[in-house]
Design a binder for these strands. Structure first.
Lengths: 215, 215
DNA sequence: CGCTTTCGCTACGCCCCGTAGCGTAATGCC
DNA sequence: GGCATTACGCTACGGGGCGTAGCGAAAGCG
């Protein structure tokens, strides 16, 4: 959300109902039309507001779609299934379920593509979507360390680096499977992926710079 | 390429030079403008051809961009560095170098986003870009099996499944690192990733359905 | 030299973008 | 209750890209 009255001053407040209606209308338009054929006029009509209202709250189509898609990821939760393997499978399945929805497919990748040429948009995506997902990785890692399933990494810099790596592997694999390969990340696929990831994590405590085979 | 004279009949042949000029102009326009602001009129002017010529050869902007980006991946080669770990690092570094180019960043993800609503476009991406990359995975796997670094999978169905999984993990991780996290997939990152992947591969010969910890 | 196909060029209707301007509605402050 | 302030709906507008049609000229093939 970019709105929220700036400081609590006078004047007619912005309709909060309009915000939710607009974001819902945006997702509906994404389902029906996709990103490229989506027009702000159409979104305004669906939401029952004037087109000018959209331009008063969002600077453009990209920012609007980011906010509309970000709400989809609010339901992401880290389940406690007792083991790291089960936790990974659970959160990956949730992530895959969200990405399977057409409004996420067509909207998310389009704004990511746009963000390669727009630093402000990239930052908006990072704070409202990516950072929220990454927290799950950090929580899951901490929980696994508390269980003794993963060794504790004392160096905070190295810990952040490995967390970033894990995050890119998990999110990237699910996204690629769903959007590029265009096949469902179902239970069987998630089980195979979780096993690969889990064994891969076992290699991380080693010092870098010495490539070595598992054998 | 969609052109190539249909059957070899009479008439003025299509200029092959125009094809290469158009695709090069498309990549240049992607660098300068990005996907959303790229116009076919601009591409035509850069290439020194008329706008109508573009519409005679490509049905739309998406197909043109797919062909322009696909040529970037022609230089992908599987290096023979002697070990599976080194081979993985080498090909991942090449892939990352291509994705680091701005014309690949802004173009590839945009057409992937569009392909979620266009089956023909998805198929075009698959045959001209994805399938070419996947061959490297198959070759690398076969070479590693010949070296004895990976066990041979007798079941062809299972072998295809694991190849798809590896491909989604590798391509997805590099794409996510480069585009979403917006950080370079440099040598250090690739080494860490290759180690994780290599250890993860060691888990694959096991039968599915029995989640088990590496310990 | 005819036949065929491509090419460059111009022109056109269509639709979306993004903004400006106006009158009206909903608040907070005094 | 009046007043300043801000949001809202509505209309209108210039600008520009899209995709197509039509034409004459060019470049091959037999």
């Amino acid at each position: 959300m970019q709105s929220s009255t700036p400081a609590g001053r006078a004047g007619r407040p912005r309709s909060a109902a309009a915000d939710t209606a607009i974001l819902a209308a945006t997702r509906a338009a994404l389902v029906d039309l996709g990103w490229s054929k989506l027009t702000l006029q159409d979104v305004a009509t669906r939401a029952g507001v004037a087109k000018t209202t959209l331009y008063r709250r969002w600077v453009g189509k990209n920012e609007l779609v980011v906010d509309a898609v970000a709400e989809l990821f609010d339901e992401l939760r880290l389940p406690d299934r007792g083991s790291l393997a089960a936790d990974i499978e659970g959160v990956v399945l949730q992530f895959a379920a969200i990405l399977a929805r057409p409004e996420a497919k067509s909207g998310l990748m389009a704004v990511v593509a746009e963000s390669t040429r727009d630093a402000a948009l990239r930052e908006r995506i990072r704070t409202s979507i990516v950072e929220r997902q990454k927290r799950l990785v950090l929580e899951g890692r901490a929980r696994a360390q508390a269980r003794g399933e993963l060794p504790v990494e004392p160096d905070p810099v190295e810990a952040a680096r490995t967390a970033d790596l894990i995050f890119d592997v998990v999110a990237g694999a699910v996204v690629h499977r769903t959007l590029v390969s265009a096949e469902a990340a179902d239970g069987e696929w998630v089980r195979s992926f979780a096993r690969v990831l889990l064994w891969g994590l076992a290699s991380l405590p080693h010092q870098p710079g010495l490539p070595q085979d598992p054998e």
